[in-house]
C-alpha cells in the first residue's frame, strides 16, 4: 500500500515548506490584528519545534526527518536564519541543535488538579517573518522540484516527500500547473511526492478545508490551487478526522481562505508522522 513506508534513520522523511514572503503578507490575518507574515513565521517555528521534539530521544535527536524552508518574495531561496542560513534540506538533529536564537516565553498549562499554571519555556527561532516583493510561486515550485528530485534519488524507498506551499496570493510569474505537476510526478517506491497548498486570507471568509471537489470553490484561483494539490494519504485522512474535520475519501491537501487556526490544523494534519520506527 502506498504511503505506508516506515520512517527510520536509514529512510528518513522529507518535509519542505514553501512560504510566500510577498509584500501582501504585511496585511493582518482575517479576524486578527496579526500580520500574516508574523503568524506564518510563528507557526513554522512551532512546526519545526514539534518535529524536533518528536524525534528527541535519550541519546539526542534521531534523524527521522530532513526539513527545509524556502521563502519566495523579493528573493527565492532557503529561509533559515542563524547557523543554518543558506541550507536547503537539513537533518532534524542539526535543526534542533542550531536555532538562530532561543526566546523565553510564558505559557499556561493544566496543573492536573483543574487549574492552570504559568511556566517559562524556551522557544527556538529558525525562521523570521519577511514581507516584500512579488509572488514568484512558479520559481519556488521549480526550486522545490530540484531539491525533492535529488532527495528521491537518494532515498528511493522512503516515505514520499511532503511539500507544503503557504501563500496569500496569485502567482506573479505565470501558471504553476506544469511545474506543480512535475513536482507531484516525482516518486519513491512508496508513492508520489505530496504537494499541499494553503491559501491565507485577510478576509473573514469561512475557510474551505480539504475539499473533495472544486465544485464549491469561489473563484478561478481557488480552483487552480485545488488542481495543484495532492490527495490526502490514508494517514492524513485519519489525522483530519481526529481533528474533527469531515473529509471525504478523495479530499485534497488544500485549504482556501485559511485563518491562523486552520493553518495550524492543516500543518498538524499534513506533517504528522505516524510511522516512525
Amino acid at each position: 500500500m502506498a504511503y505506508s513506508a516506515e520512517i527510520s534513520r536509514t529512510n528518513p522523511a522529507c518535509i519542505l515548506i514553501l512560504i510566500d514572503q510577498s509584500g501582501s503578507m504585511e496585511e493582518p490575518f482575517s479576524g486578527s490584528q496579526r500580520r500574516k507574515a508574523d503568524g506564518v513565521a510563528d507557526v513554522t517555528n512551532r512546526l519545526l519545534q514539534n518535529l524536533v521534539v518528536r524525534c528527541a530521544r535519550e541519546e539526542g535527536i534521531r534523524d527521522y526527518f530532513h526539513l527545509g524552508v524556502l521563502g519566495y518574495g523579493g528573493e527565492v531561496g532557503p529561509a533559515f536564519r542563524g547557523p543554518l542560513a543558506g541550507r536547503s534540506l537539513v537533518p532534524v538533529s542539526e535543526i534542533g541543535h542550531a536555532p538562530a536564537r532561543l526566546e523565553e516565553r510564558t505559557r499556561e498549562r493544566e496543573d492536573g488538579m483543574g487549574g492552570l499554571v504559568r511556566e517559562k519555556v524556551r522557544f527556538p527561532i529558525w525562521f523570521e517573518s519577511v514581507a516584500n516583493g512579488a509572488t514568484p510561486m512558479c520559481q519556488a515550485l521549480g526550486r522545490a522540484t530540484s531539491l525533492v528530485g535529488d532527495w528521491v534519488r537518494r532515498y528511493p524507498d522512503g516515505f514520499p516527500p511532503i511539500v507544503v506551499n503557504i501563500s496569500d496570493g496569485q502567482p506573479t510569474d505565470g501558471d504553476p500547473t506544469a511545474v506543480a505537476s512535475e513536482l507531484r510526478g516525482l516518486r519513491t517506491t512508496d508513492g508520489e511526492v505530496l504537494l499541499l497548498n494553503v491559501h491565507l486570507s485577510a478576509h473573514a471568509f469561512t475557510p474551505i478545508q480539504f475539499p473533495s471537489s472544486d465544485a464549491g470553490l469561489p473563484d478561478a484561483h481557488a480552483r487552480l490551487l485545488y488542481g495543484l494539490s495532492s490527495r490526502l494519504t490514508p494517514g492524513m485522512l485519519s489525522a483530519a478526522r481526529e481533528e474533527g474535520l469531515q473529509v471525504g475519501e478523495g479530499a485534497r491537501g488544500f485549504v482556501f481562505n485559511a485563518d491562523i487556526i486552520s493553518l495550524i490544523k492543516f500543518l498538524n494534519i499534513g506533517t504528522r508522522p505516524s510511522n516512525l520506527r
Binding site: Q49, V52, V53, A56, I61, G96, V121, R122
Partner: peptide, 10 residues
C-alpha cells in the same frame, strides 16, 4: 537537558 528534551519531558 537541552531545550528539546526539556520540552519533551513535559
Amino acid at each position: 537537558l537541552p531545550w528539546y528534551a526539556e520540552e519533551k519531558l513535559r
